[in-house]
Write a protein that binds this DNA or RNA. Sequence first.
RNA 1: GCCGGGAUGGCGAAAUGGUAGACGCGGGGGACUUAAAAUCCCCUGGGUCGCAAGGCCCGUGCAGGUUCGAGUCCUGCUCCCGGCACCA
Length: 857
Amino acid sequence: MTRSDPRAPAPASESALRPDEERYPAAQIEPKWRKRWDELGLFRQDVSHAENKFYCLNMFPYPSGDLHVGHGRNYILGDTVVRQAMLRGRRVFAVMGWDAFGLPAENAAIQNKTHPEVWTLRNIQRMRQQFDAWGIGLDWSREIASCHPGYYRWTQWLFLKLYERGLAYRGKAPVNWCPSCQTVLANEQVVGAGECERCGTPVIQRELEQWFFRITEYAQRLVDDLALLTEWPEKVRVMQHNWIGRSEGAEVHWRVDGTSEELVTFTTRLDTIYGATFVVLAPNHPAVAKLTAGRADIQEFAARVARQQSDRRYDQEPEKEGIATGLSAIHPFTGAKVPIWVANYVVMGYGTGAVQCVPAHDTRDYEFAKQYALPIVPVVRATASRDEGWEMVGEDRVFVGEGVVFGSGPYDGITTEQARERMAADLAQRGQGKPTVTYRLRDWLVSRQRYWGAPIPMMYCEKDGIVPVPESDLPVMLPKDVEFKPTGESPLAAKADFVNVKCPKCGGPARRETDTLDTFVDSSWYYLRFLTPRDETKAFDSALANAWLPVDQYIGGVEHAILHLLYSRFITKVFYDMKLVSFVEPFRALFTQGMITRGGVKMSKSKKNTVAPDELIARYGTDTGRVYTLFIGPPEKDAEWSDRGVEGAYRFLNRVWRLGRSYGALVRETASAPRPVIESAAAREVRHAAHTALARVTRDFDDFHYNTAVAAMMEMVNTLIAVSQKEAAALEPGAAPSDVRWAMGEALRLLIFMLSPIAPHVGEEMWSLYGDDTQAGTIFRAPWPEVDGSALSVDTETLVVQVNGKLRARLELPTTLSAADVEREARDNPRIATLLEGRKLKKTIHVPHRLINLVVE
RNA sequence: GCCGGGAUGGCGAAAUGGUAGACGCGGGGGACUUAAAAUCCCCUGGGUCGCAAGGCCCGUGCAGGUUCGAGUCCUGCUCCCGGCACCA
């Protein structure tokens, strides 16, 4: 007999084969069930009822074309979560959309001379098929694409709303510019050592006028509300916290000696100000130009260093360099004159760009002071009880910790913490400073000089200046016939009929904004759109949103830990302030899954290390791929792809399949018969295996531990197969009813349930063939089975007997024995008895079902 | 440098403070077969004693500690991964 080919339809003679020669015929059954789910509308959700709702969302993908198994892992995980929730009676909402604007489409368009839209829509179609091939259950009637005018109209609306609220503004600022993508980037899109997130090209700085969203206004709330996100990974919360970078400190005003100018410094260590021996300005601080107008050497130095700062690769810190301005600042407490310097180690982008320098208590200032022979004045000493906070600068120790202040006039003797408070209060009283909070977070730069994005709905009128497009005129349609070569200016700028418009205010000539929106604006609100995806009257429905959101489970890659998640949180808070939603956070629980690697690196098209799902599915079936990707390891961790591992998953499914072929009929037999008295050891073993597995799987599903859930099922299947071989006669068709038959039927029924979220096609097929109530036409409408606690217990237990924690003996005892009996048995054991002889027993520790430990002197 | 997360067999990994290595991969042996494939069974951390049944010792990155008992808790390190970084 040749091996059966799972791709070929099974010949009629197949059933005549010995069960152990059969394989799970994936190609024959899997498409059938996908069609069935579609017919039943299994994943269609009527959103008018939201009780017991479960909104599960995978981050919507960029339609880049082919999906590989690495992508598959994300969606398989999400689908398993959804199906398991469905089995447990939740009203699931599972949807999919496309983050369809963006650079790759444009780059592909330039390369292949295809319009970005054509390229994008073709990819979407292809990916939709792939989702289907993986058996991902989705309500496709709610599909959205951010490049569709029906969607981006509302992205533009969002922009107008932010503009109305003063949260969108046009400003000139040094911005990150990618010379390869020919566009500006948000701070969040600059990664690694100052490289473009997309293409890896080193980013340079340019001074440009651009649109920004005032996310900094929400910095405090974005920090505070992290505390609400208890079901987010700690890692992501910390990353967001660091990114926002809140630091508490004080603003200090310094008069510049001999001028009417004032400098404002920011410090977190106001307590050390009596040790401030100089002040440093960032090279591009506005005061530098103003105060040193006549000094070409300083101007040149500042210009050179500013350029270095902006072009710098972040991999190493440059040597400290500075130049004295010859000017002095008046110390706000002592009235002393301290020199003002310009140096390369202070940046304009944080705080005020001006810093008080206390070389005795700051390593950077210390290094600089040493180099330029500036005075070092200590004003804080460590306390006797706590001598920590020393750091090394070369050979020298610098005290940067907390302690007690001295040499600080009226503040001598108080702690650094007290000093910070009192000094700030005193400064505020004199109008020379105040306590402030500074954030690392910058405003969100949303302009992009590229074609394939949502046009920014703004105009520039000669008379009225910046004028928003009236809401009723939305969408500002993206013209289709455009040259989209990157020139550093939006391709839209070259289209006269797009650019030249009438001012809605005065009717005079106006120019349209030609930049498009960052695609992260598109994705900052999409989770709200799925509820009313075709609504032409509003972006989303508040009542429905309040009923269905926040998203109960959000799933995606950790690479979005900052960008997308921060922006979405921000936009949700804006909607909250607009009273459009009643919640402040969009995603209640977040799960960040790991990547699949091959050869140790992330699977990606560019690295040519992908595994195509089509081939895998053709050879082993979708469910094999699903079982494998969930069994590969904990889903939050990266995992290395292994073709051998796939074989293992396939073997497991085949074992399940053959069990069904051999004993599936017992499921119905069991269902129609009351549970007999379970007497035989074999029946007890089967029930114990089945209910233990059910208990573990139920628990593991709740914690995303799909790898151990599969392991639990494998163990159960191993037991069933072992018992089936020992009890072959009793299990044969037509044999007399018995407790083993009943137990096997029950076990298989439970197995079908446990397996279904992970291998839904196998589950459905087995349920339809053997299930005890297949009326609804799908197992996913049947209720999840209950664990029978009595089946979990065993008759005897192997107790480990220890003396003083050392393993000494094993005892096989009935579980019905009382603790006292167990202890007597342990002490009566010959080996233990000899150990106890002549020693005094101090106490006995009895851990039920595990061990007994006798503690002796 | 700061913050977070890790480190367990040949490999991916399991272990509410209670028999470390479940489950899977790989490896070895056996059954079935003319043979192979498939399937099924047994063994598989290291060392050591024993003809054998079966023992014993060591073992979760390193050094300590708490505990009757530590992969798990505590203290101090080492290394790896991720994030941020002259952030004042």
